[in-house]
Computed example of a mutant assay.
Amino acid sequence: MAASFELQQVLDLDKWEQLQEKIALATNLAIILVDYRGKPVTRHSQVKPFCRLARAHPTLAVYCEKCDARGALEAVRTGEPFIYRCHFDILDMAIPILVDDRYVGAIMAGEILATEEQSTFEQVLKLEDHPEVAAFKAQHQDLIDAYPRLPATAMHHAAAMLEQLCEYIVSEAIKKEYLVQAYKQSLRIQAQPLTSESWSAPKDSTNLAYLQEELRQSLLIQRLSENSIYQAKNQQLQPAIDAVFANKNAHLDLGQLAALVNLSPTYLSRLLREEFGEPFSQIYAKLKVYWAQELLQNSDLPIAEISDALGFVEPSYFIRSFKKIVGTTPLKWRQAKRR
């Protein structure tokens, strides 16, 4: 998930922008949220006049973007906030947002000056001798002089505060928005109604790898009744679904299933997608893997025999299918479960 993780999926950006604006006003920092590609996902809060002019300049804006990119890369490299000087000798900071140690975005803040020891901060892009940069800076020196000044310690405190804030908000968003909604989606076709007694949050709901495994399991296990037979919400589909469960050693296609319920394969496909919330081919593949996991955990059958028992053409295809869904091979999964 992390590779495709999007901040927009779990954050209420409208609420974030309101909070971002209040933080910018309270700290005198200009703040913007960017995704892992460096693309802004919020408006720029409290951007200062000089920086607004520079970022609107066709040539100088490129240098501003380079500074942002280099600052963010250094923050990602170290895994912690990075305070630096831009090409105009103005201080900015990049606060990386990491999920499972993977970079998903950053808070870019700053547009301030230090009350002392400004030169001790690294300058990520040196263009003092660039004529256009020097001329622009000289022309608008009064705007630079009006920038807020903070002690170095105050800047480090602000960076630490933003880091903890974004960690908290993102982790809470994952738990309360992504996790809960994903579980509700995965459980919405459960045979029994969802109640507080039948469902509880995962023990480690901030770990995305854990969530992925839990969601994979919930798609199947939580949807099945005690006798491992799925009870369809659309009763018209029950004969087709019963046939799938009764013929675990075969691979039934939509044509065969459609004949059982007197529907066209196309219409059956649409009804099954409505029932399961995803294409039938995907849920069928996950069912096969679920049955394979039962055999792997509860028997000593070789991988090849499990493959045959579930109707796979050859063991290599079974192994590829299993790994695609679970993330590891059947043998490694069995070994891990038996440790």
Rank of each mutant, 00 (worst) to 15 (best):
L254W: 01
R223W: 02
A56S: 12
Q8K: 14
H157L: 11
I144S: 10
L25K: 12
Q190S: 14
Y178W: 15
Q164T: 10
A243W: 05
Q185F: 13
E132H: 07
Y147D: 07
A259S: 04
S264N: 04
R55E: 05
Q192H: 06
D89L: 13
L268D: 01
L194R: 01
R339W: 05
Q222S: 15
R85N: 12
F121M: 08
Y168S: 08
N249M: 03
R223D: 01
L165D: 11
R216T: 02
P131T: 00
S196N: 10
G311N: 11
I325H: 08
A304D: 02
K337G: 09
D242L: 10
S321E: 00
L73M: 13
Y317F: 09
C67W: 09
A158Y: 14
L91W: 02
Q118E: 07
H87F: 15
L98C: 06
Q231M: 15
D89V: 10
P330I: 04
F312Y: 11
L11C: 06
T120E: 12
H156V: 06
D68R: 10
A72D: 05
S196D: 09
E177C: 14
K288S: 01
M1L: 03
N234F: 05
A75S: 15
C67T: 04
H44C: 15
I23E: 00
R37H: 08
K66C: 10
D142V: 12
K286C: 00
A24V: 00
S4W: 04
Q20V: 02
L7M: 10
F136V: 07
L219I: 15
L162W: 08
P151D: 11
